[in-house]
Amino acid sequence: MSDLIEIKNLRKVYRMGNERVVALDNISLGIKKGECCCILGTSGSGKSTLLNMIAGLEKPTKGQIKIKGSRIEKMNEKQVTKFRQKNVGFVFQSYNLLPNLTALENVAMPMIFGGVPKKKREKEAKRMLTAVGLGDRLHHKPSQMSGGQQQRVSIARAFVGTPEIVFADEPTGNLDTKTTMEVMELITNIAKENNQTLIIVTHDVETSVYANRVIHVRDGLIESIDSIDKNEIESKQEA
């Protein structure tokens, strides 16, 4: 099976005054459809920069990023935005919910840009919120929900419309241990059920155990790649 995401010789250099900072240095990586992949590293390792490159949020200094056969780094802003709307969902550490909108409205929002009719948007948003255990919080605003509930809304928004790829950037960074486990089980189970590719970026080793593969990033380089046994994941979830 060919890779859904192909990264070749990826390099990113930032200029800060007269100084050059190498954030990514000649990274090559393949990620398959339906894979749950974790990019693990400390602050400043280059993991978030790598996510931004794959998601088309930043342009590389050099190298290739191919998703579903399309060269992301060659696209202009309008093209890459349209590509993300069709193929990508995001889960953020800080939830990134609009405070004046209800849970239902927040989850339905991505479908507005896709031209989905209102009735269908609301039906799909309700289905996803029910799937993440918030069927009784449809009309609550973020300020009326706990951090864990807000992250569930964020998850529902990321997975609504079944995008082929979901990026989770430090998805449990603001959550306690119990809620972290619940959220990770939720994200990985939804992705597995729908054969979606899930890319998690984190500094937390305990979060990384939920992935199929862990890519250790340090100083802009891939230090090592570990495969995780499915039994280890199930044991973690049952603990």
Score class of each variant (00 low, 15 high):
Met1Glu: 04
Asp3Gly: 05
Leu4Val: 05
Ile5Leu: 08
Asn9Glu: 06
Arg11His: 00
Tyr14Gly: 06
Tyr14Ile: 09
Gly17Met: 10
Val21Asp: 02
Ala23Ile: 06
Ala23Arg: 03
Leu24Ser: 00
Ile27Ala: 01
Leu29Asn: 00
Leu29Trp: 02
Gly34Val: 02
Ser45Val: 01
Gly46Leu: 03
Leu51Gly: 00
Asn52Lys: 07
Glu58Thr: 10
Lys59Glu: 08
Thr61Trp: 04
Lys62Asn: 02
Gln64Ala: 07
Lys68Asn: 08
Ser70Tyr: 09
Ser70Val: 11
Arg71Val: 08
Lys74Met: 13
Lys82Phe: 15
Gln85Tyr: 14
Lys86Trp: 03
Gly89Phe: 06
Ser94Thr: 10
Ser94Arg: 11
Asn100Glu: 15
Leu104Met: 09
Glu122Leu: 07
Met128His: 01
Thr130Gly: 10
Leu134His: 10
Arg137Glu: 06
Lys141Gln: 15
Ser143Val: 10
Gly147Pro: 04
Gln150Cys: 14
Gln151Met: 10
Ser154Gly: 15
Ser154Phe: 11
Thr162Trp: 03
Pro163Thr: 11
Ile165Phe: 08
Val166His: 04
Ala168Gly: 07
Glu170Ser: 14
Gly173Asn: 05
Gly173Leu: 05
Met181Phe: 12
Met181Gly: 13
Glu182Trp: 14
Leu186Cys: 07
Ile187Ser: 09
Asn189Ala: 13
Ile190Val: 06
Asn194Lys: 05
Asn194Gly: 00
Gln196Glu: 07
Thr202Pro: 09
His216Trp: 13
Val217Tyr: 04
Asp219Arg: 12
Glu223Met: 11
Ser224Met: 14
Ile225Ser: 08
Asp229Val: 04
Asp229Pro: 01
Glu232Asn: 12
Ile233Val: 15
Ser235Glu: 07
